[in-house]
Design a protein around this nucleic acid. Structure first.
Length: 640
RNA sequence: GCCGGGAUAGCUCAGAGGUAGAGCAGCUCACUCGUAAUGAGCAGGUCAAGAGUUCGACUCUCUUUCCCGGCUCCA
């Protein structure tokens, strides 16, 4: 008796029961050493698994996404083993791999401190050196429960009991590496020695099962990579992200602030940030007008009654501020703009000939956010949405969706985001409308995306209760993901407000309504932009596009002349007239990330030229001012 | 909201149960200077706020506010 092992189209007869590792060794020794996990019939299996029947093996190393994920998952187990050795009183809970790393949650009365991390890292190193293999065992549920109960691991017992309840399992798998045993579905790396490059990063509190009603556990975050270079690169990226933190840059570039006296989550836009916002808003408005949107403006507060009609007081109450009393009437600060746009719509009877109506507003809304979630400009309590509502007939929906998606992509590409992922979020468990309505709407959205040949992912059940939506997630210069444009279909509000139009048949019909925000909120989008550009805004957005630097006082007159000429061409130019050395002035302009610096000295005056320094390219040498104007014009035009 | 860590000059940060320190920025003066920091001098603080312990608190304790890392939630 033997089994046939197929590997990369080569085939060998082998002893039944031989491990994957040993089998692969016969084909490729080097690869067997690097193997993290095997894939057989599309399923990932441990390298330690014995082969009992004919197989076609595919080997995954830590170079592959799947291999890396398993390496990280296994590293989290080893970290748990190390923690158990150092702190025998802890209980282990769960420890998955996550994007860029892993974590493990422990139940321990005393929190871990950052000082514990090096100690744990050292213990991990020891365990790796001891080279324990990961051995999988299948236990009956009863045996497993008994084992974990004897070990005092009550969370594991709870997990198993839930598996029995929810998935009706009769057996569970546990992995043993050295003296550490953990409940785990696997698969895992063959042995601890496969872990080469890892680092523990952070400690934090986290609720058991992510539910704030449960006990707070102590989480340790870490990461692992295929090799030291990749780990170092990752750590470098983390440091770069820190350098680009919009809160830090916001202060350095004097863009915005938050005021203790003003209250948390309420942003103050300083002149520099304000100017950039103005440019963004102007661009936004012009592009909307080009696309036959109308601009509307609505108040910040409305009677509580309106929010009752809209349903916000039912489903959004915990995010809304308490009512203000005005003349004995209750008013509430708006958390959304939609009811206001509907009120404008309802000032008239609309014919199907009027539709679609596209109404856009930079609408400032206020939402109560729990204190712990506020985060710079990315999560605030008062913000301006670049909102729009489209009222249309069912027939028009698809085209409106197509236009929204096109518009969204145009906007994000204008801000230098060339990579993005599109998601179609479908019906959640709780929803307004009928399943039939949802099916039709989802189908329309799907068609809209398909017709433009845009690849997208279905986010099953990811929609809000009132309708399916298309979300676009941006990838920034550091490869991080950001929530971008969102285009949401709404079954709910048009019903609540009875939003209708008169059709060709003379009858009233219910409007279709689409909410959409392309940037989301100006605050969040701006925070994201700051990080994406690392504060070095492209010329069209830079508060100061050109800093003119006269070398000595006698050069000021010409410098002023140059600045004036640039201003006449609608560029933002300033002259640094301080009696400082040129190097000093350059340094300051450079730190302020001004795109162009013009050095003006005797030579320039004599030749009637300017010496141009670009913030990234450095010294570009002397040129005629018209040459610079052409360059600037082109950069502003191209938004790069 | 919860767990943990913070708050010292405009900024970045050091310090410590006996009354506060640096660098940068600011102001003044000198230097008129060529591609990332000229030098000197001056000024700058209710050590987040309130209460308590103490002969004495910026330091220890408590409360509050705000910030940071997470959890949950989200534009």
């Amino acid at each position: 008796m033997s089994v046939r092992v197929l590997y990369r189209e080569k085939e060998r007869e082998m002893e039944p029961g031989i491990s994957m590792t040993d089998a692969v060794k016969a084909f490729d020794k080097k690869l067997a050493r690097k193997a993290i996990v095997a894939r057989i019939d599309g399923k990932l299996v441990d390298m330690n698994t014995p082969i009992t029947q004919d197989v076609d093996i595919e080997i995954l190393t830590a170079d592959t996404p799947e291999g890396l994920e398993i390496l990280r998952h296994s590293t989290s187990h080893i970290m748990a083993a190390a923690v158990k050795r150092l702190f025998p009183d802890v209980q282990v809970t769960i420890g998955p791999s996550i994007e860029n790393g892993f974590y493990y949650d422990f139940d321990r009365d005393e929190p871990f401190t950052p000082e514990d991390l090096p100690k744990i890292e050292k213990e991990i190193k020891k365990i790796i050196k001891e080279n324990h293999s990961f051995e999988k065992q299948i236990l009956t549920v009863d045996d497993a429960i008994k084992m974990f109960r004897d070990m005092g691991e009550t969370y594991k017992v709870e997990l198993i009991e839930d598996l029995v309840k929810n998935e009706k399992v009769e057996t569970v798998s546990v992995y043993k590496s050295g003296d550490f045993v953990d409940l785990c579905r696997g698969p895992h790396i063959p042995s601890t020695s496969k872990i080469k490059s890892y680092k523990l990063l952070d400690v934090a509190g986290a609720y058991w099962r992510g539910d704030e009603k449960n006990k707070m556990l102590q989480r340790i975050y870490g990461t692992a990579f295929n090799n030291k270079e990749e780990l170092d690169q990752h750590l470098k990226n983390l440091a770069e992200a820190k350098r680009r933190d919009h809160r830090k840059l916001g202060k350095e570039l004097d863009l915005f602030s938050f005021q203790d006296d003003g209250g948390p989550g309420l942003a103050y836009w300083h002149p520099n940030g304000g100017l950039i916002r103005h440019i963004i808003e102007t661009f936004w408005k012009e592009e909307h007008l080009k696309r036959e949107y109308d601009l509307v403006y609505t108040p910040h507060i409305a009677r509580a009654h309106l929010w009752e009609t809209s349903g916000h007081l039912d489903f959004y109450r915990e995010n809304m501020y308490s009512p203000l009393e005005i003349d004995g009437q209750e008013y509430i600060l708006k958390p959304m703009n939609c009811p206001f746009h509907i009120l404008i719509y309802k000032t008239k009877i609309h014919s199907y000939r009027d539709l679609p109506l596209r109404w856009a507003e930079l609408g400032t809304v206020y939402r109560y956010e729990r204190s712990g979630v506020l985060h710079g400009l990315l999560r605030v309590r008062g913000f301006t949405q670049d909102d729009a509502h489209i009222f249309c007939t069912p027939d028009q929906l698809k085209e409106e969706m197509i236009n929204c998606v096109k518009f969204a992509i145009f906007i994000i590409e204008s801000f230098g985001f060339s990579e993005y992922d599109i998601f179609l979020a479908t019906r959640p468990v709780k929803f307004a409308g009928t399943s039939q309505e949802w099916d039709t709407a989802e189908d329309t959205l799907r068609k809209a995306l398909n017709e433009q040949e845009l690849p997208f992912t279905i986010d099953e059940g990811g929609a809000v209760f009132y309708g399916p939506k298309i979300d676009i997630k941006l990838k920034d210069a550091l490869g991080r993901h950001w929530q971008g444009p969102t285009i949401q279909f709404d079954f709910n509000l048009s019903k609540k407000f009875d939003v209708n139009y008169i059709g060709a048949d003379g009858q009233e019909h219910r409007c279709f309504m689409v909410h959409r925000a392309l940037m989301g909120s100006l605050e969040r989008f701006f925070g994201c932009l700051v990080e994406h550009y690392g504060g070095a805004f492209p010329a069209w957005l830079s508060p100061v596009q050109v800093m003119v630097l006269p070398i000595a006082d006698r050069h000021i007159e010409y410098a002023d002349q140059v600045a004036k000429q640039l201003k006449n061409e609608n560029f933002r130019a300033k002259v640094d007239k301080r009696r400082e050395k040129t190097g000093f002035k350059i340094r300051e302009a450079q730190i302020q990330k001004v795109p162009y610096m013009l050095i003006i000295g005797d030579n320039e005056i004599e030749e009637q030229k300017i010496a141009v320094r670009e913030r990234k390219q450095g010294d570009l040498g002397a040129m005629d001012i018209h040459r610079l104007i052409d360059i600037l014009r082109e950069r502003v035009e191209k938004k790069n």
